[in-house]
Nucleic acid binder design. Sequence first.
DNA 1: GGAAAACATTTTAGGCTTAAAACAATTCGG
DNA 2: CCGAATTGTTTTAAGCCTAAAATGTTTTCC
Lengths: 172, 172
Amino acid sequence: MPAESDCTAMLDSETKAVETPEDHADELRLWLRLLTCTTLIEGEVRGRLRHRFDVTLPRFDLMAQLDKAPDGMTLSDVSKRMMVSNGNVTGLVERLVESGHLDRRTSETDRRVQVIRLTKLGRAEFRRMAAEHETWIADLFADLSPKDVRELMRLLAKTKASAQKSAARRRP
Amino acid sequence: MPAESDCTAMLDSETKAVETPEDHADELRLWLRLLTCTTLIEGEVRGRLRHRFDVTLPRFDLMAQLDKAPDGMTLSDVSKRMMVSNGNVTGLVERLVESGHLDRRTSETDRRVQVIRLTKLGRAEFRRMAAEHETWIADLFADLSPKDVRELMRLLAKTKASAQKSAARRRP
DNA sequence: GGAAAACATTTTAGGCTTAAAACAATTCGG
DNA sequence: CCGAATTGTTTTAAGCCTAAAATGTTTTCC
């Protein structure tokens, strides 16, 4: 490795920390703001779902995944899509089967796999909730212009890619 | 109120739903992307905190609030800042007092109020974790240019304001 | 002064969430 | 074909989280 005058790009994080304790305050503030927005909106949606439909947000999210998959999904699929642990899905599904919103059966070709689907009731209820949910989201983002929305989409796509890359660096 | 030809801005959500079932798919996609980014980063940070320091994210967050308040905070303050329920803070504080990171005392002037502070140990441990935490965040956002960061900050500020306004509309 | 409202916190009941270990079924490589 | 790795799910133990009710304290305002 040749000598470097401008070396920022080449140093690993340890070296950085020793030689140039860089300031990452902007990124930190950005992260906190991102978290604040999400927490704020999530809390609002959670409360409205509870008051209007007496349903929890995780239940709604799970039904949303299934609504997009008419042929059903495996628990693993759901777990990956929702970005939650496997065990979490097990319990969530249990309660939704219990309440008649989901149908669960063991795959015929692979007896490890559980396939879940929305029941007729589950689909009907979800559609009803989803329609209203969409208006809440629109209202929560109402002050953003279409251009703002596009720009945020673009920047968040970049953020997602950056974070995934960073995560992959540590867990190759 | 005069007659309107372009009436979008004037209709309430019920009228909208009946007359012009508008498409809010873009806002919905934006919300899902925002949520994905946050979940991704949050999960990454949670895992690193656990592996490197054997600490949970909520504990770290609570200590971060207290680090900014040398004179301590009341439980209500903490609860508002962290945007979590009061009861949640009670339990969190209990465990952190138990492990020697926090000091809690009843206010002398108002016996309803509990004031909590970081202990010496708590502060030292937090500072050590925070330094490393900052590099993780920087790395997670590494592919964003300074301009991207500024632009995201701006758009998220607008998003936060919009969401707060929407929340206030329903809960005046 | 004293009842009523407001406030800060805790408790309660239930659900969500995770990481890790355990279990079960399938696939892979020799 | 058979043992070993892999995959899909559940279980376990612990902690997080919420909404609502309960408790104790202070303020308000007649």
